[in-house]
Amino acid sequence: MPTTPTAAGFDEYVAARGLALLRFTYLLTGDYHLAEDLLQEALAKVHRRWSHLADAERPTAYVQKAILHQYLSWRRRRSSTETPIAEPPEHPTIDHAELFAERTQLWHALSALPRQQRAVLVLRFYEDLDDDEIARLVGCSVVTVRSHASRGLAALRNSVQFARGEAR
């Protein structure tokens, strides 16, 4: 079956940006397989509207917002008895044991954050977005973004200090 120009454009976009979108989703979920599922669901929803987005100035922002909404609604649907299990990154870039332990500890602390705080921190530090853009994507005020970032960073600091045995 021949592909339409719209479908071909979507396929090209996914081929070019798919790995970056998967990394973004993985940082949100902390689970590689769940990230794949979530990304697939978000891309399926975006595909329906691709003919309207293909000429947009920043289709990636729309796709990230779809992923973010999928992630936030998925977290609401989860059973309260299920908890995500964070896995350490597959290919650590630093092989020093102490640094790897700190990285794993930070990963676990990030996984324990509430979903809004985690989303804000991923968007700020991984995607390097400013507060206005994060507020637009998450659907809240800039003040709320700053509050989530501040509380999330404080929780991460406390977690790291606690694990090191330092006073809070």
Rank of each mutant, 00 (worst) to 15 (best):
P2E: 09
T3G: 13
T4G: 12
T6C: 06
A7S: 09
A7V: 06
G9L: 04
F10K: 07
D11H: 05
Y13M: 12
Y13H: 09
A16N: 11
G18V: 08
F24N: 00
T25R: 03
Y26C: 13
L27M: 09
H33R: 15
L34K: 04
D37F: 03
Q40W: 15
L43N: 07
W50R: 05
W50A: 02
W50G: 01
S51H: 15
H52K: 12
L53G: 04
A54I: 09
A56S: 12
A56V: 13
P59Q: 05
Y62T: 06
Y62C: 08
V63L: 10
I67R: 02
L68Q: 01
L72M: 14
L72I: 06
L72S: 07
R75K: 12
R77L: 08
R78G: 09
R78C: 08
S79L: 05
S79V: 12
S80R: 10
T81C: 02
T83C: 08
P84H: 07
I85F: 08
A86S: 13
E87K: 15
H91T: 13
P92E: 13
H96V: 04
F100S: 11
A101G: 08
E102M: 04
Q105T: 05
W107A: 04
H108E: 00
S111L: 13
S111F: 05
P114Q: 13
P114C: 08
R115F: 10
Q116L: 10
L121Y: 03
L121T: 00
V122M: 05
V122E: 00
L123S: 01
L123Q: 00
L123W: 00
R124Q: 07
D128E: 06
R136I: 01
L137E: 00
V138A: 01
S141L: 02
S141D: 06
S141V: 03
V142G: 01
T144V: 06
R146E: 04
S147C: 08
H148G: 04
R151L: 07
G152E: 01
G152W: 02
A154D: 06
S159F: 10
V160L: 13
R164Y: 05
G165C: 02
A167N: 14
